[in-house]
Design a protein around this nucleic acid. Sequence first.
DNA 1: CAAATATGTGACAATAATGTTACCGGGGAG
DNA 2: CTCCCCGGTAACATTATTGTCACATATTTG
Lengths: 240, 240
Amino acid sequence: MAEDSTILIVDDEAAIRDVVGITLDLAGFDTIKAANARDAHVSIIDQKPDLVLLDWMLPGGSGIELARRLRRDEVTSNIPIIMLSAKASEDNKVQGLNEGVDDYVTKPFSPRELVARIKTVLRRVNAKQRDSHESVLQVFDLELDPTSHRVTIKDKLVDMGPTEFRLLKFFLQNQEKVFNRDQILNLVWGANVYLEERTIDVHIRRLRKALSKVSGTSINYAKLIQTVRTAGYRFSIRST
Amino acid sequence: MAEDSTILIVDDEAAIRDVVGITLDLAGFDTIKAANARDAHVSIIDQKPDLVLLDWMLPGGSGIELARRLRRDEVTSNIPIIMLSAKASEDNKVQGLNEGVDDYVTKPFSPRELVARIKTVLRRVNAKQRDSHESVLQVFDLELDPTSHRVTIKDKLVDMGPTEFRLLKFFLQNQEKVFNRDQILNLVWGANVYLEERTIDVHIRRLRKALSKVSGTSINYAKLIQTVRTAGYRFSIRST
DNA sequence: CAAATATGTGACAATAATGTTACCGGGGAG
DNA sequence: CTCCCCGGTAACATTATTGTCACATATTTG
């Protein structure tokens, strides 16, 4: 699984920036670098990294200051921070945790450890957000259960690929509304992908086929996914 | 027997923290340190120590306060607490025990005594959990008995490692729900481990293999552990 | 009706995700 | 101390899925 998370590295030593940067690049992260607190602040507002690696010992004590500021600011307060420090001082550590820093890595560190800690922090943060129970989406006898990650029609399992699952979920959440292919690409695949628009047609096809395979139903669920010529697709329980 | 328990030391005096820390490290415990109640709280949430060593006399009476808070909080209420105190006042002791503190050690204390008391408390707590009858989990002819730490299929013993046992127990307690690898790491291994996600796949494999080895059953129990591509794993009695 | 445009459909190769095996190192038991 | 078990990881094998193309079919336009 690719780590598409973006990490901001803040350190005044170019050497450290490079080493850390290469390490994280290899681990599959996107990286941004900043040499001082001011640049870092700009970058954070600009790029919204998923995590900040912050040198404790920035000139003028600006490292800890930045951490404090990030915590206070509404926009950045939930971006996890990992502190880098030249030496393992318990006092630093305690103070850091006090400022809401999420973890603490002392230099010198192994690339392994650094990557591991980053992953752990990201995991912890994500886990917190992910505990919310999503409810079952349903239309007539069709049910999509995000929790068990299953689609059933009259309790019979519907077999489909991951993309079709996401697509169906999207349609169930946005019925009666037409989406053009651009929108579907953005909303189901996410921004920052470049794909042929026709790709969508193929997945629509696959989804329809999956829904059709289920026997013993009076309703043709594939028909609920309607083609709106020149405009896109629409999921609707009303006939065309 | 190895003490892999983690002890959180809360004391405002660095000297005490160090002495106690070294003592416990030598005794084979993992230690975390905190200087004040606030740090301690963060650490507890974060690291889930197995026991808290808490100085009674934290500035502002925050020691006793922290103890109270930990007892009230659902998540921390079953973490045992040992109080450290400068002098043995019967009043303090009574009050402490009132707050649900598990034991009481007066400074100065010998390393021997401290370690002994910690072990005693941990043993007591573990015993309590052992006695509290966790019910046998079962699915068809498969039974997992948390008390005897055994898994059987049709009364035939299923041989598996400790990790596989915990994994199976987790799945039996959370059926029909998909968990991604992040979640499984958090919920089965704990929040503070740095592991490759692929490690899970290997343990899944080992668990499936263990379940398959049992002969003379119409049901393939290994199949109950289902792979949900791109989403994780799911334990389910329904066919995929 | 023919041309032009849009969507449906099946096949295919590249890729990503998972299954599987083997190895290494640490730690307890003897 | 050595042996053995176990957990974690890397390396390789296998499988499912993805995106794209080429062509078929349908709809619109003039």
